[in-house]
Computed example of a mutant assay.
Amino acid sequence: MSISQTAEYALRAVIRLAQQSDEAQTTQQLAEATLVPQSYLPKVLQPLARAGIVVAQRGSHGGYKLQADPAMLSVLDVVNCVDPVRKQDKCIGYDTVPEHRCGLHQLLDEVAAATQKRYRETTIQSLIEADDHVPPLCPAAKATVQTNDSDAATPTLR
């Protein structure tokens, strides 16, 4: 079970804001640190602001700050804000009550419930403080230009 790209972007932004809680982050700073397209960040940040998870500050030192307490903010809170995990309430094409769903749809519902439980139990703070020496965000990719005889001007990400 995976989340949408928008939900992942929202999590990346929230984690970064939690890491930089002392100062507001511009969309450019967030985009560079999280590898989220700068033009897409407003779509990600607006529902988070409406929910009170982040706050936008105007002015010369403006940008976005995390308003919610990262120790109380769950991954599920962030995901549900932008793209909720959906449960399979009935079999597609059939009017059935949840107790009479087919085995496939029962399984899909159980997986969604387990995913929601894990997301609910994981706070943003716990991701930042994880003691497994793995950073909570992937390092920024660096573009390098690789040339070859057939196409000398093609940049390649490494």
Rank of each mutant, 00 (worst) to 15 (best):
L127Y: 04
Y9A: 05
L107Y: 13
P42G: 05
P42S: 03
D77P: 00
P37I: 00
E8Y: 01
A51P: 01
M1I: 00
L35A: 15
P37E: 14
T26R: 01
L127E: 04
A18C: 06
Y64R: 02
V79W: 01
V79Q: 02
P135K: 00
P136M: 02
L11N: 09
L107H: 15
V54S: 04
P155M: 06
L104S: 09
C138T: 13
G59Y: 08
T123W: 00
R50G: 00
G62Y: 03
V14F: 03
L108P: 01
V44K: 03
Q29M: 10
V14I: 06
T156S: 12
Q67S: 13
L45V: 07
E8M: 06
N80Q: 14
A143M: 14
Q5V: 04
T147K: 13
L66M: 05
T27Q: 15
I3M: 13
V54R: 02
S74Q: 09
L41F: 02
Q20Y: 07
A33R: 03
D151R: 14
V75I: 10
A71Y: 12
V75H: 04
A10N: 03
R86L: 10
A13C: 15
S150I: 09
Q5H: 09
R58A: 08
H100M: 11
E129D: 15
V78P: 01
Q67N: 11
M72G: 13
Y94T: 12
L157G: 05
V111F: 10
A18D: 05
S4P: 01
K117L: 10
Q46T: 10
L48F: 09
A153K: 07
R58H: 09
L11D: 12
T154F: 11
P47V: 02
S4N: 09
A68T: 03
Q116Y: 02
P37A: 11
V55H: 05
E110H: 12
D131I: 00
R101V: 06
